[in-house]
Amino acid sequence: MERLIEILEEIQPEIDYTTCTDLIDGHYLDSLSIISLVAELEEEFDITIPTVDIVPDNFNSAENLWTLITRLQEES
């Protein structure tokens, strides 16, 4: 989780990722930031994020992202 927060801060600083729950709905992350994020997450956590999982629910908070990462790690 700590590494995830670090990655998020590298991509878009100025956001408190421990409390923010509307990263997509609140327009904090745009689609280009998401490509950066997906590329970084796939490399860092050795996962493949399918297009169908790129939905606001999965990306709205660091916690939801962490849930997605752990799920994909278990599936692979």
């Binding site: 689609s31 490509i35 490399e43």
Partner: peptide, 19 residues
């Protein structure tokens, strides 16, 4: 392309090309 570009241009500009 993203993974190649990230190695050369970093995490901000690398994914920007495919984006």
């Amino acid at each position: 392309l993203t993974s190649h570009a990230r190695k050369r241009l970093g995490n901000h500009f690398g994914p920007l090309i495919s984006g």
